[in-house]
Every structure is written in structure tokens, then in C-alpha cells.
Amino acid sequence: MVISSTLLFPPPSSLFVTAMSILSCVSLANGGYMETKGKHMQYSKFFNVVAASKKPKDHEIKLPSRNGMLIAYTPALLAALSSSAIFPYRDLRIVMLVSVLTIHFFKRVFEVLFVHKYSGSMVLDAAISIGSSYTISTMTMIYDQYLSHDEFREPAIDLKYVGVALFLIGIVGSFYHHNILSNLRKKGDREYRIPKGGLFDLVICPHYLFEIVEFVGISCIGQTTYTFSFTLGTMLYLMGRSYATREWYRSKFGEKFHKDVKALIPYTF
């Protein structure tokens, strides 16, 4: 209780938010575990490699990866942009939270349109499912913040400005390393290469590391149970995904892949 009142708003009197806090963390953690076992999300390059060896299902509608990713990210961006009409507010913390969520998904849509290069496809059902998940999570963060502002006092330790600094570090680092990945291949080139530059010389997934920093920043801005539980789930998911990514590079490139390059955290993991 002391820790909660010092760092977090108490959980609001909403069964929906409480259930979502548990569900989001558990489902993301399970997704990370499944990644380590070779059962990948349907937008990953690993899923496309596995799917290419299987007979496609007759009822599946496949989209170009770019279109699928737009379907996955755009609804959450629109939800964040329109949230002020749904939840009228003037509190600075809420404005900051909505702003960073909007920037986060704007960056993702921008990268889909202008940065990433694609070599696969995405199943429509998966794109809709992922998009729905992002949208619900985004709106739950904002709704939880709105309830917390109305029901409780501010936490004793104010972390929102620390959160903004962490968010900016995370989003710049993530964008920078996504650019490095994109520049590995020219247009029409489908060959995978070992990324070099930035933190890629230390970890194979620095873009995931910086995304975690982003969400830690978002958690510090919000200081609610849901944002922290969602961030914890995201960390566990990206740990599993980065582990799977490292194993994929090791199996594909063998001795060319330096054994000292870790999955996510330099020199550690």
C-alpha cells in the first residue's frame, strides 16, 4: 500500500480496468513465452518463414505486409487522437499521456509508410486482431488515467517528467535502429543480413530495448496500475521475441553471427 500510494495511483473502482490489467500482462507474457517456443505472431518474419512451408487455408485473406501493419496501428492512433472528445480533460498528466500515445502510434504508422521494407504478407484476421488489441489497450490506459484523476490524489513521487525524458530517449532510439534495419536491404532485395551499427554490435534487438524504454516512460507519466502492468507484459513479450530473434540469426548465419551479441540487454541477455 505504501509503495502504491508513493509511486502509483490506487487501482480505480472499475472491474473492467482491473480485469484488463491482469489480462494484458498475462497475455503479453504468454506471447513472449510462445515466441521462445517457435509460435510467432502473424506479423513477424519468422511467422512468414514458417507459413511459407505450410499449405494456406482457403478462408484466409492475405494482405501485403504494409497494408496489414497499417490496419494494426492506425485504429490506435485514431483512438488516441479522438480521446479528448470521449474523455474531456484539462489535467496535465492526462494530456501528456494522450500526447505520448499519439506520438508512439504516429511513429509506427510513419515507419510503416516510409521506413520499413517488406518481403511477406499478413493475414487480414491477424491484422484486425492486433489492431483491436492496440486500440483497446490505448483506450484503457487513457480511461484508467481519467478515473484515477477523478478518484484519487496524485502519487507522492511525481514521475511524469522523468517519463517524458525516458519516452523521448526510447522513441528516438527505436526510430534510429529501425532506420538501420531498413537500410540493410535495397528495394526488391529479400535477403536478410546481420545488422551492424548503433547498438546492433551489442544486441540483436536494440529497437525492442528502446521500445521498452518508451513504455517505461509511458508508465512513469501515467503512474497507474494498468500502464505498469501493460509495460511489464510488453517487457516480457519483447524479451521472448528478442530471444527468438537471436536464435533465428544464429541458425541462419552460424559462425558469422558473433556469439557475444546478446538478444536485448547488452552483456547480459
Rank of each mutant, 00 (worst) to 15 (best):
V172F: 13
T102C: 10
M96E: 05
L97S: 11
Y176M: 10
Y192Q: 11
L159S: 10
K187L: 06
I169Q: 07
N183T: 03
D189G: 11
Y118K: 03
E111R: 15
L97V: 09
D125F: 07
M141E: 05
S174C: 09
I180P: 13
G173E: 09
Y176A: 11
L159N: 09
R90F: 11
L168H: 06
G131K: 00
T140M: 06
K196F: 10
A156T: 05
I94Q: 15
I142F: 04
V115W: 14
V164Y: 02
A165F: 12
F110G: 04
G170C: 13
S133F: 14
V172G: 06
V95D: 03
T138R: 07
Y176E: 03
F152D: 05
K196D: 04
R185D: 07
V112E: 02
R193E: 12
S132H: 03
V123A: 08
V162F: 15
L209Q: 03
P155W: 13
S132R: 04
V98M: 05
R90D: 09
V172N: 15
R90E: 06
K186L: 07
L168I: 10
I204N: 01
A127W: 02
S148G: 09
D144Y: 03
Y192V: 11
G188I: 06
G170T: 00
P195D: 09
V203K: 01
H116R: 13
H177I: 04
G120Q: 02
I171D: 13
P88W: 12
V172S: 14
A127Y: 01
G173W: 12
R153P: 03
D150Y: 12
Q145H: 05
V203T: 13
R190E: 11
D144P: 00
I128P: 06
A156W: 08
T140W: 02
R190N: 14
T140K: 04
D158L: 11
V203A: 11
D125A: 14
F210A: 11
S121D: 14
F87T: 08
K187V: 08
R90S: 15
A165H: 10
V162K: 06
S119Y: 02
M122A: 01
H207G: 05
L101V: 03
S121I: 00
R153M: 04
I157R: 14
Y176I: 01
F110A: 04
G131Y: 00
H149P: 03
I130D: 09
